[in-house]
Design a protein around this nucleic acid. Structure first.
Length: 493
DNA sequence: GGGCTGTACTG
DNA sequence: CAGTAC
DNA sequence: GCCC
DNA sequence: ATATG
DNA sequence: CATAT
């Protein structure tokens, strides 16, 4: 839950009025950021208040025509005075924790020319905002506003601790914090004492003590120490380079490197191809992707794919399928009914060739073709014409008989996948991207026999694991705090 | 004390 | 294999 | 760091 | 990338 | 040099 509800003084007039599950989910996100949602405009609200935005029309469906928008609002073009923006205005505002000017997001109901200057400018703004974010993180530590609910204060600090441990390669500690966070989110009462805390699943002595410290002092010493550690700040910068993990980052640090410029100057020739691309596109790949741009990628790739095979299906998975307002990357699954992997690989190979020729694919990080062998995956950088950033885009071709397991895997999120896979383990099963298997003793404990139970249908996999079906938008499991809502306990976990 | 998701690439 | 990524 |  | 044959 | 780890 955002501490500062950035839209708390803003009323959104939403178009369209009709509801799909996805739209409902996205509107809930708006509400969590404080927005008031309405569907028709009272007369007295239909005016602009100087530069301050208090009333705004938000169009959630890109494909709507201007006439449809006006009809939905029950407004005439000549009488509508409020700004009308696409949902990117909201999602990028949330991302930057500020109410953005409408320039560049406005949908002009009367003919007018949207330009690319405004798009470019957004690229610049992004970097300036980064610092304010760090500063505002610690605001909770200044004791001025004890009106934040206690559990939320705890979550705030534990999340930061988890992130710190993640960055410093202390995977298991980080995971412990994430699990504790999940527990606390599922706790109905306000935790007040050590005894209450330690009873919760995944909260042991160490975490219980820290929870008490947070409640009593509204801060956490260990976190402050670790957060101010200049080494960790540098490591975090290095680790954002694609192809650079904790090991390489640490190695560079001990070699005396401190900035990206240092790396370019002293290491460039020694970098792997992946890392060179990682550096080249460092700024681009640090940007979040507005959902509306995801829709454009979807259209573009589907078009290209259908030119090769009209029967092939193109789906975006990942956080896009989970309904996120902004994404870190774009994950495509390409499949086709009754089709085996070999044919699909051929489709991917041709698709990649076409997309490369058209200038969409800018670089291949893990190619479709290696030593003559055609792979079923492609990781690449790709950019749409007239868009300001190159994006991280992944392609995966999946044979029709594995599509359920693949959808499950590629939809995520990571935490949800781990929960589900752990559950499989506990039931003597194994869940992977290719299917749900029963693990049988085959005499050799190193190579147990794996019998496929299900791989075609997502829902069946849920059933076999004795789980209630969850829509993709309900799979934003805790710890990562993407756009999605945190998931409540549902008896399953 | 060992497990903590499971798979596949690069170098 | 270690490291990295999904 | 937590759980078994 | 390094080890091994 | 090819393959294993």
């Amino acid at each position: 839950m955002p501490q500062h509800q950035i839209f708390r003084d803003v009323t959104f007039y939403i178009v369209p009025k009709t509801n799909s599950k996805l739209l409902v989910h996205r509107k809930e996100i708006f509400k969590r950021h404080g927005a008031t949602l309405r569907y028709s405009i009272p007369l007295e609200s239909n005016r602009r208040n100087g530069t301050k935005i208090t009333n705004i029309v938000v169009v959630l469906d890109e494909k709507l025509k201007k006439e449809e928008i006006l009809r939905d609002l029950q407004m005439e073009l000549s009488t509508l005075l409020l700004p009308v923006v696409n949902s990117a205005w909201v999602s990028e505002g949330i991302e930057k924790n500020t109410i953005l000017p409408v320039d560049g997001y406005e949908i002009f109901l009367s003919p007018k020319i949207p330009n690319k200057r405004t798009l470019k400018r957004n690229a610049q703004d992004e970097n300036d905002q980064k610092k304010t974010k760090l500063e505002s993180q610690n605001k909770l530590e200044s004791q001025e506003k004890p009106e934040v609910p206690p559990n939320q204060r705890i979550l705030h600090f534990l999340k930061l601790m988890s992130d710190e441990y993640e960055k410093t390669n202390q995977t298991w500690k980080s995971q412990s914090y994430r699990k504790a966070i999940e527990s606390i989110k599922n706790t109905a009462f306000n935790i007040r004492t050590y005894e209450q805390a330690i009873k919760l699943p995944h909260v042991g002595k160490s975490l219980a003590s820290k929870i008490v410290e947070i409640l009593q002092t509204n801060s956490l010493k260990q976190l402050q120490t670790v957060q101010r550690d200049p080494k960790l700040i540098v490591l975090a910068i290095f680790e954002k380079i694609f192809g650079v993990g904790t090991h390489t980052a640490e190695k560079w640090y001990y070699e005396g490197l401190r900035t990206l410029e240092d790396v370019k100057a002293e290491k460039y020739m020694g970098l792997s191809d992946l890392q060179k691309y990682g550096l080249q596109y460092y700024d681009d790949w640090s940007q979040r992707i507005p959902r509306v741009e995801g829709e454009k990628h979807d259209q573009y790739v589907r078009m290209a794919c259908h030119k090769i095979d009209p029967q092939a299906e193109v789906h975006i998975m990942g956080s896009y399928r989970r309904g996120a307002a902004t994404m870190g990357d774009i994950d495509f699954i390409i499949t086709k009914k009754e089709t085996k992997i070999l044919e699909l690989k051929g489709i991917l190979r041709r698709l990649v060739a076409d997309l490369e020729k058209s200038g969409y694919i800018k670089c291949q990080l893990r190619g479709v073709e290696k030593r003559g062998e055609i792979k079923s995956k492609l990781f690449c950088g790709a950019q749409l014409a007239n868009y300001p950033f190159c994006r991280r885009v992944d392609f995966l071709v999946v044979p029709s008989d594995e599509i359920g397991a693949a959808f499950l895997y590629f939809t995520g999120n990571t935490t949800f996948n781990r929960h589900m896979r752990q559950r499989a383990i506990d039931m003597g099963l194994k869940l992977s991207n290719s299917g749900l298997y029963r693990v049988e003793d085959s005499g050799d404990p190193n190579t147990p026999r794996e019998v496929l139970l299900e791989s075609k249908d997502e829902r069946t996999i849920f059933k076999l694991l004795n789980m209630e079906w969850r829509d993709p938008v309900e799979r934003n499991f805790g710890g990562f705090e993407e756009e999605g809502k945190s998931v409540k306990a549902a008896g399953d976990f």
